[in-house]
Amino acid sequence: MIEYIPFIAVVAMILIGLYAVVFRRNLIKIVIGISIIESGVNLFLIMLGYREGGVAPIFTSLPPGTTYPPEMVLPVPQALTLTSIVIGVAVLALMLSLVMHIYRKYGTLDVRKIRRLKE
């Protein structure tokens, strides 16, 4: 059971994020919601990197005589997560700057009032 807890956390984070995006009115909270979804997905990726009894993927510290032990953990998920975090930062910054400009033009952060484009 305990090994499923992280996955439950992932799903919960994604659902919380979606809830914030769909039901919260403040633009900043929507941005926070997206950020939570992103953290959830990142957590998911990190979790996939865990191998029980794994060896760090450093070739110099391998046991002598072995070249590629099967228990060596591939660093792929970590690399993916780093990339994803970097992208997330860019998206976050862009979204927040847009929110700032929108506040200047519309005078509000209520998502229900920011809808001149409709129908």
Partner: peptide, 14 residues
Amino acid sequence: MHTGNTSDYILWFV
């Protein structure tokens, strides 16, 4: 249907 509300767009996605 096309409310112009960003949340509703995501609601449709969900």
